[in-house]
């Protein structure tokens, strides 16, 4: 009896984290950890290794959250990278053209204004995406393909493809500083992931997103203004891309129209690896975080082993297929 309740409790925890995928991913993470520990040894556990892992993950992580939101609703957001770059350029533009004084209140204030302006741009792009998808019924892939090209076009047009660089210290700190040894960028990631998890799991809005992802029409017939939900969702997705923009520009101390373009498909890879259903309706932030940890661990380990980063890409792809095949293989075994 006792055993049974504890089992069901475990099951419930497992399910609230994202079901069978979580189990598979945890197992994978632990086994990779063991394998790399054996192969690489102490170096794998050194503080600098851990820190370098933690510095690289946040920007991909935040972008993946942005992608995940759209995927959950049965959509897709191809414009996240372009949004991030346009946001980053907006902030960079403001920071490099006018800097009132140095280290005064106006100086800090101006940086905040710049970041706010960046978010306004990101929010506007989100509104366009959301409006076109929710109210004009354009398929998300097409709509965001359009805004992606548009944003990149604006960014290239304004900068002529040039890099804008040289930011004040507080901005640099966001990408490169640490708090008690923890990279600040990782803190930013946590500050995104936790609210997104709460939003999805414990608010009416989140519940509606999942239901829309499975069946938008039935959700509408239940009295949900699905269009308003989708509009809000794409704004959130865009704002997350904006946060990623700040982290990215801070880490590189520069902004450009074409940074991070190779991330686009990797965010889909990470989300799907984390158990997000590419057709919508299912997926948890916990799964995504595990997936990101796995991807980052492989990348860092290969780096320590002096293996090509491109081999890392190939292994990432292989892992995605392996994890995606687990449900079918499990069903085969059961038969």
């Amino acid at each position: 009896m006792k055993q049974e309740t504890s089992l069901s409790w475990l099951q419930r925890v497992g399910r609230s984290l994202g079901g069978g995928t979580i189990g598979t991913l945890t197992l994978l993470l632990v086994s990779l950890w063991v394998v790399f520990a054996l192969v690489i040894g102490d170096r794998f556990f050194s503080a600098s290794t851990l820190q370098s892992m933690a510095f690289q993950m946040p920007e991909l992580g935040i972008l993946s959250l942005a992608m995940m939101l759209a995927l959950l609703s049965g959509g897709l957001n191809l414009s996240i990278i372009a949004t991030a770059n346009l946001t980053g350029l907006t902030i960079a533009f403001m920071l490099t053209r006018t800097v009132p004084g140095s280290e005064g209140i106006a100086w800090v204030g101006w940086q905040l204004v710049a970041i706010a302006a960046g978010f306004a741009v990101a929010g506007l792009i989100g509104l366009i995406n959301g409006y076109v998808i929710a109210y004009l019924n354009v398929s998300p892939i097409l709509a965001t393909l359009g805004t992606m090209t548009l944003c990149k076009g604006v960014a290239i047009g304004l900068t002529r493809g040039n890099v804008i660089s040289g930011f004040p210290d507080p901005i640099i700190f966001i990408g490169n500083g640490t708090i008690f040894g923890v990279p600040f960028a990782l803190v930013v990631f946590a500050l995104c992931a936790v609210p997104v998890a709460i939003l999805l799991n414990a608010t009416p809005f989140g519940a509606k997103v999942y239901l829309i992802g499975s069946n938008e029409k039935a959700t509408r017939y239940s009295g949900v203004d699905t269009r308003a939900v989708l509009l809000r969702l794409y704004v959130y997705s865009s704002l997350l891309a904006g946060v990623a923009a700040v982290v990215m520009m801070a880490r590189f101390n520069s902004a450009n129209a074409a940074y991070g373009e190779s991330y686009l498909l990797v965010t889909i890879l990470a989300a799907v690896l984390g158990g997000v259903d590419p057709f919508g309706g299912f997926g948890k932030v916990g799964g995504l975080v595990l997936a990101l940890a796995i991807l980052q661990m492989i990348s860092s380990a290969f780096n320590l082993l002096n293996l090509s980063q491109f081999l890392t890409l190939a292994i990432w792809g292989g892992i995605l297929i392996a994890v995606a095949a687990v449900p079918h293989l499990r069903a085969l075994l059961r038969r």
Partner: peptide, 21 residues
């Protein structure tokens, strides 16, 4: 099957959909 319920989602999700707020 297509308008009354969201078949793939849980019984809980379906039962609470109208009263989330």
């Amino acid at each position: 099957l297509t308008l009354g319920l969201i078949l793939d989602q849980s019984i809980t999700s379906n039962l609470t959909l109208t009263v989330l707020e």
